[in-house]
Design a protein around this nucleic acid. Structure first.
Length: 420
RNA sequence: GGAGAGAUGGAUGAGUGGCUGAAGUCAACGGUUUGCUAAACCGUCGUAGUGUUUAGGCGCUACCGCGGGUUCGAAUCCCGCUCUCUCCGCCA
């Protein structure tokens, strides 16, 4: 959520930014309502002041045992006027809130304007040349090695759910442990294990609601939502909290299962693990001082790249253009790994700086060294999600004789060197 | 699931209709004193909205878990909700 004062003073920029993100919001209406709101507040505050002053006079009169009925009668009307104004004000603010919540975050000046993914910019790449040789795709090879089972996943849960079997399950667990250990021991994150179900306020806090509400699993009886990412509980950990400047940056690394309904996206990338309803992920979340957040975005991205190097997967880093940058984000780097079977890049991580956009909505502040309160900047990135990484692993480390080679960094965790 | 108790500022903890944005204590910050530390003493010390001001500031309004209601006036009375704690039951 943007600051209303900022919108008021930068209406044109906000409008242009919204268009660059391929979003729509009635900024003009918002500005109008804002002016009306302030007029109404001024008017009502005068009435309330009158009420307070007169009430005191009434108290004085009563104490002196004098007659106060005239003033009381007068205040009855004032009270009604206040009530009417407050009601109007509430309606107005609700309407403003609705519009304000639909205005996307301002993009950082380094983000190129562009319509869609085709205009993203490659920042760096470790892919020497795109390998063209055919390899078995992850569904075929995993069936052959009996390490993933989607058919039975569909039977037990439904389409889009899978079992990890035997060494497949071990590999999955090994990767998650490697990710967590690396972030904690080498990158300085604090390990967190969050709840996988959260309340509505948390979903609003990180911005999944209202925009993505239909994409989430909901337990209606308890008004709980299954998290689509650990970003939600990890960021909301500090909702309505005040941090100290000396404690920043706070860096969390947390594993969670992630649940996504992926409503309406069948047929697109839907094979095997490319798009599933439940997957495992280690999420990185940072709370930083405003002046540090862009440096922290770079180190966050590097932390994730480090994992890809450990997994011996060639990748590239993409700076998303305006049209491809998510609603909440000011700047996003995507990390992509080439899939020889799909003949395209797979997004395996998304590292974003939300600046104060989430913090304002979730009300996360810090007290700076002068004692003043300010919103923190929040960042997050997948570090990493295993489903697509599993796809890449099975394709890239496939040997000619149909086995899977385990990269050196993972072997202490898997305790085996090959699958098959 | 059943019974009860509670929710006030950074923390404790007063406050049962008007003079309470809120006592006292602690913590924190600034100062005095002091070989140093401590103690003592003095002072400061909530957030948000809105208006005004070149600035520092100043004014007004709101906020005592959340939402309603009663009243000229609510931290205080009434109703609903949420959360926390204790006891009993059930269960991993």
């Amino acid at each position: 959520m943007l600051d209303m004062k900022f919108v008021r003073e930068n209406a044109d920029a906000v409008l242009a930014n919204t268009a660059n993100k391929n979003e729509r919001a009635d900024v003009a209406r918002l500005i109008e309502s804002d002016a009306e709101r302030r007029r109404l507040i001024a008017e009502t505050d005068v009435l309330k002041n009158k009420r307070n002053v007169t009430s005191e006079e009434i108290a004085t009169l009563k104490k002196a045992k004098e007659d106060a009925t005239a003033k009381i009668e007068e205040m009855r009307a004032v009270g009604d006027a206040i009530k009417a104004n407050d009601e109007q004000l509430r309606g107005l603010e609700e309407e403003m809130q609705t519009i304000l919540m639909r205005i996307p975050n301002m993009l950082h000046k380094s983000v190129p304007v562009g319509r869609d993914a085709s205009q993203n910019v490659e920042i760096r790449s470790t892919v020497e040349k795109i390998p063209q040789e055919w390899r078995k795709n992850h569904v075929e090879i995993s069936k052959q090695l009996n390490i993933l089972d989607f058919e039975r996943g569909a039977k037990v849960s439904g389409s889009g759910f899978g079992f990890y079997v035997g060494k497949g399950a071990t590999l999955e667990r090994a990767m998650l442990n490697l990710f967590l250990d690396t972030h904690i021991a080498q990158h300085g994150y604090q390990e967190m294990m969050p709840p996988f179900a959260v309340n509505r306020a948390s979903m609003v806090g990180t911005g999944q609601i209202p925009k993505m509400e239909d994409d989430m699993y909901r337990c209606a009886d308890d008004d709980l939502y299954l998290i689509p990412t650990a970003e939600v509980p990890l960021t909301n950990f500090y909702r309505d909290d005040v941090l100290n400047e000396k404690d920043l940056p706070v860096k969390f690394a947390g594993y969670s299962a992630c649940f996504r309904r992926e409503a309406g996206s069948y047929g697109k990338d839907s094979r095997g693990f490319l798009r599933v309803h439940e997957f495992n992920k280690v999420e990185l979340v940072k709370f930083t001082k405003p002046e540090d957040s862009y440096n922290e975005l770079e180190t966050l991205t590097n932390d994730v790249e480090n994992l890809l190097r450990l997994l011996e997967l060639p990748y590239r880093v993409i700076l998303l253009c305006s049209g491809d940058t998510s609603f909440n984000s000011a700047k996003t780097y995507d990390l992509e790994v080439w899939s020889p079977a799909e003949q395209k890049y797979l997004e395996v991580s998304s590292c974003s700086n939300f600046e104060s956009f989430q913090a304002r909505r979730a009300n996360i502040k810090y007290r700076n060294n002068e004692g003043k309160l300010e919103f923190v900047h929040t960042l997050n990135g997948s570090g990493l999600a295993t489903s697509r990484i599993m796809v890449a692993m099975l394709e890239h480390h496939q040997t000619e004789d149909g086995r899977i080679r385990i990269p050196d960094a993972l072997r202490p965790y898997t305790k085996f060197d090959y699958i098959g």
